[in-house]
């Protein structure tokens, strides 16, 4: 029986060949679109910066050296590049806080929507999705309007008499975090909602029936079952936060740089394309490492979702 089927006929070989032919356009796009820019960036990071931007085709590891280290102008001593490191730390810190904030706000939101009657859920989802469809810049300026010194929040607090002087929120790290939280919250709510909608709520009842308090039901039953959604949401919020450019620019007022802004600076005013390229690859590496750690940690207890 095996010796008959193991030899592919001419017809089968033709089918396999045709499949590869049909796949070629898609594969070509994938290969060029995914690895092309990456290879260019990687190449640039090992070249010498040109005088007016661009690169000179001369091999150099200076860019990589400069990512975290710098040489003193006067006595040539090596030291850590404080500016880069603080921007790196700020990016990671704000992205983590944004992710945690998105979980805190997004989890109850998704749970609320998932427990509404089926007919009403679409309406609530629409309220989440409409801002998501709105232009990023407009959304960011809307948040800015809320928190600036003469904005809604401060005016309201002063009118009620809780504060006498406006709280300076805009152009601080808090402002960047609020901005990113608002912009990326739907990316947390959507996957969380998707896994909560599939949650069998008789399991929640079974938990209550077996003497579990509300908190125990949340921790022992709901959380483990919606973990895939929680992981997906966290990744979807953390990754773009880390590379965010527009929000830190607008909300941070150019004073609180994040990695995205630093990279842009090198390609623009800094005229140091190799350093910009090296920083980009660094950002990519951080994202990859974070993802690997996160998926490993989360995947330890395998959850068969049914």
């Amino acid at each position: 029986m095996a010796d008959v089927s193991e030899v592919p006929s001419a017809r089968e070989r033709a089918i396999v060949r045709n499949r590869w032919l049909l796949l070629t356009p898609a594969l070509a796009i994938l290969i060029f679109a995914a690895s092309g820019p990456l290879l260019i960036t990687l190449t640039y990071s090992f070249l010498t910066p040109g005088d007016y931007g661009g690169v000179e085709w001369k091999f150099s590891t200076d860019a990589w050296f400069n990512v975290i280290l710098q040489r003193d102008i006067f006595d040539d001593t090596l030291m850590f590049a404080d500016a880069h490191l603080s921007i790196l730390w700020r990016s990671v810190k704000l992205s983590l806080m944004t992710t945690i904030g998105a979980i805190i706000l997004g989890f109850p939101t998704a749970y609320f929507i998932a427990t509404r009657p089926k007919a009403h859920r679409d309406f609530w989802m629409l309220l989440i999705i409409i801002p998501f469809w709105t232009n990023l810049l407009i959304r960011t300026f809307a948040v800015m309007e809320l928190i600036r010194n003469e904005g809604t929040l401060n005016t309201l607090l002063m009118a009620v008499g809780i504060i006498d002087d406006p709280i300076q929120i805009l152009y601080t790290e808090t402002a960047i975090m609020i901005g990113m939280l608002y912009v990326y919250l739907p990316l947390m709510v959507l996957p969380l909602y998707a896994s909560m909608e599939r949650l069998d709520f008789s399991l929640v009842e079974a938990g209550y029936d077996l003497y579990a308090t509300r908190f125990a039901v949340l921790r022992r039953i709901i959380l483990p079952l919606v973990k895939p959604g929680l992981i997906a949401g966290s990744i979807l919020v953390f990754v773009p936060s880390l590379g965010a450019y527009v929000t830190p620019r607008v909300m941070g007022g150019g004073k609180q740089l994040m990695l995205g802004n630093l990279i842009e600076l090198q390609f623009g005013q800094g005229r140091n394309w190799p350093l910009g390229a090296a920083l980009s690859i660094t950002l990519l590496a951080i994202v990859m490492v974070a993802l690997i750690f996160y998926v490993r940690a989360a995947g330890k207890e395998e959850v068969p979702h049914g």
């Binding site: 069998d200 008789s202 077996l210």
Partner: peptide, 20 residues
């Protein structure tokens, strides 16, 4: 009493076993 304080237990129609 809330459900989790009642000295009764239920066998659900769909069993509602915890899949994890």
């Amino acid at each position: 009493l809330p459900p989790h304080s009642r000295p009764v237990n239920t066998v659900f129609q769909s069993y509602a076993l915890f899949p994890h």
